[in-house]
Simulated scan of single mutants.
Amino acid sequence: MKKSLVIAALSAHLTTQLFAGGDIAPVTVNEPVLEEVAHGHHEESKFYVVVAGMMLLGDEIQHGEALLDGDNDYGYGFGIDIGYRLGNGFALEYDYTYGKNTVYEITAHDEVKATSTYHTSALDIVYTYEATHKLGIFGKVGYEFEWEEISELNIDEREDDFVFGAGIEYALNKKYKLLAEYEHSLIEGPHGDAILAGVMYNF
């Protein structure tokens, strides 16, 4: 029925133009335009990687009858995150970090200086809120496994617990973002909390 009406209308238009001796006006058919629907998150690639330098803030913990003090000197290290965006601001990340800091074992009669090294592997859920087109605010929660070694004190430990993080990211372009993050683990250690700063690359 609709096709018949369209054909009839076109025929009437052509007939009128011919009998009037005028030029036939072109009939323009507008194609439907697909509108982009904004959901608060601009389109990004699914996979990304973050490479960051890390500063360890140090902490004091009780270890048997001794106190392990990592507060005196800031430690250092690096972190690597591999992420997959799930959509609506959520992402799944695998994190690896390596760190080193100076630790003092303090007892009633002695103080021993040592070097602590540790590795962590974690699986996190991340949510990022895009405050502006370039600035994002994120939070993460995950579960991590930690390997810590202080060879001078004969400490070689494996622990696991929850880890939390929060930070900001700033987009330089579609491929690169600058990132800063504060990280806190429920695993107690002389390395303490960590601050990371680095670059994100979107594939």
Rank of each mutant, 00 (worst) to 15 (best):
D81N: 13
Q62W: 07
T117D: 11
Y129W: 13
Y84R: 10
Y104V: 09
G139Q: 02
H63A: 13
G70N: 08
D71C: 11
A114L: 09
E43M: 12
D73P: 03
F145E: 05
W147R: 10
V163E: 00
L67T: 15
F162V: 10
G79N: 14
G70K: 04
D71M: 14
A114Q: 06
L86M: 14
G64H: 07
G53A: 15
N88C: 10
A171I: 00
T97P: 00
A166N: 05
I155T: 02
T117H: 10
F145S: 03
V163N: 06
S45Y: 08
I137D: 01
Y96T: 13
T128M: 07
N154T: 04
N88S: 15
N88A: 15
G83T: 04
A91M: 06
H133Q: 12
D71E: 14
Y118H: 11
H41E: 12
Y104E: 13
D95V: 08
Y74R: 12
A131Y: 07
V50N: 07
G77F: 05
T117L: 09
D156Y: 01
K113P: 03
S116P: 03
E157A: 07
K140C: 00
E146K: 13
Y127K: 02
N101M: 08
Y129T: 07
D69E: 09
H133V: 07
D110Q: 12
E152G: 04
D59E: 15
S151N: 13
F78R: 07
N101W: 05
L56G: 14
G53W: 08
N154P: 00
V51Q: 13
G99A: 15
E169P: 01
T132F: 03
G87Y: 10
S151C: 03
I137G: 03
K100M: 15
L86R: 12
V51R: 11
I61A: 07
S121C: 00
I137R: 00
E157K: 14
I150L: 06
I125Q: 01
A91H: 03
G58M: 10
R85Q: 14
A52W: 03
A166F: 05
E152R: 05
H133S: 15
D71G: 11
E149Q: 09
A122W: 01
W147H: 08
A114C: 08
D81P: 09
A66C: 05
K140S: 02
S121P: 00
T120W: 02
V51Y: 11
I155A: 00
E148A: 11
Y127V: 05
A171Y: 04
Y129P: 03
V112W: 10
F78M: 12
A91N: 06
G99Y: 06
E111L: 04
A52V: 02
G40V: 09
G79R: 13
G77Q: 01
E148D: 13
S151F: 09
T102W: 05
G58T: 08
R85S: 10
A52Y: 01
E60T: 15
N72F: 11
A52P: 05
Y96M: 14
L153S: 05
G165A: 06
H41C: 11
G89F: 03
T97W: 11
L86E: 09
S116Y: 06
E169W: 01
Y129G: 05
V112G: 03
V141L: 11
Y84C: 06
G87W: 08
Y74M: 12
E111N: 13
A122E: 04
A66D: 15
K134T: 02
R158I: 05
H63T: 12
G136Y: 01
I82Q: 04
K134I: 01
G83M: 02
G87Q: 10
